[in-house]
Design a binder for these strands. Structure first.
Lengths: 199, 199, 199, 199
DNA sequence: GATGAATGAGTTTTCATTCAT
DNA sequence: TATGAATGAAAACTCATTCAT
């Protein structure tokens, strides 16, 4: 009855699910494993979640929410100069890296496990990528308007490319045993993005 | 007896597997479906492949081999000027896009299905990404040596970033119903890579 | 504490059970549904009944008691002539029809759901049929003694047959959306019973 | 591949199912029990039937088919006199009794288990009862036309009543350990039907 | 007395793999 | 060599019942 207790327990099961899914992947994980990991009975799991897929969705939503927290405070039109924008990109990148650094297993779930589970989940993932693309696009458009970014930029595709570099960093972070060197990655990304590769 | 016939049949089963896996994904596909798709008996499948996972590995190897075919003729030290390198990057990118354009379902298998199937497969995938990274790294190092790329480039990370942009393009290609506009992508990638975003 | 209150509540749960069982059948009904229908907690149910089977037995007993009420005032030896007996049969039949007409769902429980639930319940049902048979047999024996029924009647079997016709009427009543035409049934039953079919 | 073998095996599983269902009832029976009874693996069951409900339907269909065999050779218009009709009724009744006597468990399935399993099954059962009613009605109408049955008979309801008496006999047959005395039942039924109860 | 969260035994069903023909 | 019938381990999910509050 105490709503708080109930919410706490749901939360605990959610965390246990994230742990188990991270370790074995969605298909190799069983509800029994989750229940055991959390130290509850099998039936108890089903009091809080409808199915294994249901809890997986909840886990992914959770991860996405954490990412949103990082991006929320940033404004697309805040930067008025190239240097300010560069600093902003570094800040956002570092924030994402930090968020996933905290829980590298979650990144694995989002980027490795989630795709290919269900049609519905794929739609959600795709929508998120699109959403991030649009957000980054707004940043680029602001830069062009302010005059500190190239006018002939293909903002739509470039936004996706920029994001893909950041995602790749997170992926590497998730995949490697040794935590990737964040500084190198943020630096390399901004260097490539702002200066390009040419001498 | 005729080794050729046997090899042909193995090949046919491999193709059928790729078809079925592409359509339903690894877990939702059954060996029975593959056998039926190819018009053979269930037991016959096991005369050519050890298991469902075995044939999936073979399918992925096949996809990777096709990619290798695109990259093989290119030499890391062939470019002596920035323009030549730029042309080379465009050529490689276009080659990859074309290869997957031919069979978009295969890209889905590689980027969406393959991760999260098995530990072993993941190692292989990771190794391939690393291998591609090392290859691209060689290109970058050649550019620095020749003097047409920046000396302070973090070649290791930058190589992965460049590759990630190309992969993202392929992923988009695989995900979207309407074939992505290749020209835009190759142009945007090289623009970002060589000029950066700044005005 | 107040015994009356307790009895009332037990009664309310019993009614709720009858409603739920009538709607979904025994196996498809859950104790949780009964509790919710009555607006009580799940645990409260078990303060008044030992088990799901227990309450089902109680429901069936209830239905049987209602039937008994119809039959109670009738006396096996009351009729002294064929016409009186015929009137009595019509009265009894009409009473039963009316009782189940009131609550057709109960008839369904008794004739459709109850058999095949448990051995014990089946025994009880069988005992009831036997009991009714014996009752009817008494009526027939009275008729023979009084001389208005055939001497060579197989009273035991004939009693069961007469009853089966009435039961069939109730069954039809329970099964059909449109309430069966009582008058036709009582008339047809007495006609067949007293005149037979021959011209 | 040998269709015959396959059909035989399906038959064997069907028989095993009938045995198990007869013994424990539908709900208390498990597919595992059926498989064990037949001495096959659990999976083998599912090669021949889609589900537990599927095989139950098949069993009921089987029983109905056996009943049809008894009734098939009889013609509604064959009897031209009361005596002939009476003989025909006795023959049909005895045939049904015999059919179920052979396998009393099947009668239990049909009359005790089948109702209340599923909506679809109930429809089928009801349709069958209606069908039998129509058949008997044809016999009665023939008798009226020929002039050996009463003109004022409510043929529709009376047909159902006559059938209900026969069904009741079968039910008794199914319920009692000691095989009911067929002769008494057929005699009592025809006596009640043709002569009625009055002296 | 009332409650409802917790439980786990029990069932159905799927499907990769084997092996006798 | 080809086949497909047989298999059973494995997993998701339900729900009657208990008991601590």
């Amino acid at each position: 009855m105490p709503r708080v207790k109930t919410e706490q327990k749901r939360r605990a099961i959610l965390d246990a699910s994230a742990r188990v899914f991270s370790k074995h992947g969605f298909h190799a994980s069983t509800v029994a494993q989750i229940a055991e990991d959390e130290g509850i009975g099998l039936g108890t799991f089903y009091r809080y979640f409808d199915s294994k897929l249901d809890v997986f969705h909840a886990v992914i939503d959770e991860v996405m929410a954490e990412v949103a927290v990082v991006l929320a405070p940033e404004s697309a039109s805040a930067s008025t100069t190239l240097d300010e924008y560069r600093a902003q990109v570094e800040r956002i990148g570092r924030g994402l890296f930090d968020a996933f650094q905290q829980n590298r297993a979650l990144a694995r779930l989002l980027f490795v496990e989630a795709p290919g589970i269900s049609q519905e989940l794929n739609e959600k993932l795709k929508a998120t990528v699109t959403f991030f693309g649009i957000a980054t696009q707004a940043y680029l458009e602001n830069g062009i308007t302010r005059g500190f970014l190239r006018k002939d930029l293909d903002v739509e595709v470039t936004a996706l490319l920029v994001n893909s570099m950041v995602f790749e960093g997170v992926r590497q972070l998730a995949a490697n045993e040794a935590p990737a060197e964040l500084a190198r990655w943020t630096k390399a990304i901004t260097a490539l993005m702002f200066e390009g590769v040419r001498a």
